[in-house]
């Protein structure tokens, strides 16, 4: 079965079932190693879906395949009915990589503008105001600073602004806070929740942090390792907007516990 990312006829769009990111039976082999056994996943606009799993479970690989950076060995991926390559040509993704990947020769503001400045032809007619976004993440005073003058947390905030500045319908976040200390991490997930709250953006968030998964998500897809596969999906029905006090709520702990058990059952099964 090697039917990969067949674009859907435009007539089907009206039926509604091609909206969102759809990965169907997607798997990946590297050489002779199964990195990811077939996975089905959907992300709708306005929804935050988290891939949670131990390292080596293929969660980053899945994100990279959706972003068109890697081709699946089998299965189909569509983004609003489009192939990943076509979606990236049309700038449908705001990618937040694990390292901030700021360009050291660009100022904070110029870095925040980077994705707007490239492939300009595919920009939407109106783009968000980068200065205002920088203000919202508390970096208004650092517009003219260079990346090396910022702390790790501040650098990743620029990375977030850079992705949001694209006003893309989908955000793909690959463990963006993994390199930060615990306290900064908590600040960052609170910030991300407020940033993405009033938008109609679909977010795919990859993490190995339980707290991040519960705090940010509408749904959490738990993966097991080697080969990666879905162990279970947990709906997070906590109220929105998410606020930091939520992390002391018993309901929060309950979902965290469910996720932890799923994670460990996946680990022991493999």
């Amino acid at each position: 079965m090697h039917h990969y990312s067949q674009p859907v006829q435009s007539g089907d769009v009206s039926s509604g079932n091609v909206h969102g990111i759809r990965a169907t039976g997607v798997s990946k082999r590297f050489n002779s190693v199964d990195a990811l056994s077939p996975v089905d996943i959907t992300i709708a606009r306005g929804e935050v879906v988290t891939l949670l799993g131990p390292s080596g479970c293929g969660k980053t690989t899945l994100l990279r395949m959706i972003a068109g950076l890697e081709r699946p060995t089998s299965g189909t991926i569509t983004i609003d009915g489009d192939s990943p390559e076509s979606a990236s040509r049309r700038k449908r993704f705001g990618l937040v990589p694990q390292s901030p990947a700021l360009l050291p020769w660009r100022t904070v503001e110029a870095n925040a503008r980077l994705l707007q400045d490239i492939n300009v032809g595919a920009n939407p007619s109106s783009l968000p105001d980068v200065v205002e976004l920088l203000d919202r993440v508390g970096l208004a005073d650092f517009r003219d600073a260079y990346p090396h003058e910022l702390s790790g947390g501040m650098q990743q905030r620029v990375g977030l602004v850079r992705a949001f500045a694209l006003d893309a319908p989908y955000l793909l976040m690959d463990e963006p806070f993994a390199a930060l200390d615990e306290i900064t991490r908590a600040d960052m997930r609170h910030l991300l929740a407020t940033l993405s709250e009033p938008t109609n953006t679909g977010v795919l968030f990859v993490t190995h942090s339980l707290a991040e998964a519960v705090y940010l998500s509408d749904r959490v897809v738990v993966l097991s390792s080697r080969p990666g596969g879905v162990v279970g999906t947990v709906a997070v029905d906590l109220a929105r907007p998410r606020v930091p006090q939520l992390e002391d709520d018993p309901a929060f702990f309950a979902i965290e516990t469910t996720l932890r058990r799923l994670l460990y059952s996946g680990a022991s099964a493999s």
Partner: peptide, 18 residues
């Protein structure tokens, strides 16, 4: 050149020239 930055460029289909 930073591999993560290269992927960032690829994710929005930057041209070879860019």
């Amino acid at each position: 050149a930073d591999p993560a930055a290269r992927e960032l460029f690829a994710s929005i289909d930057a041209s070879r020239w860019e």
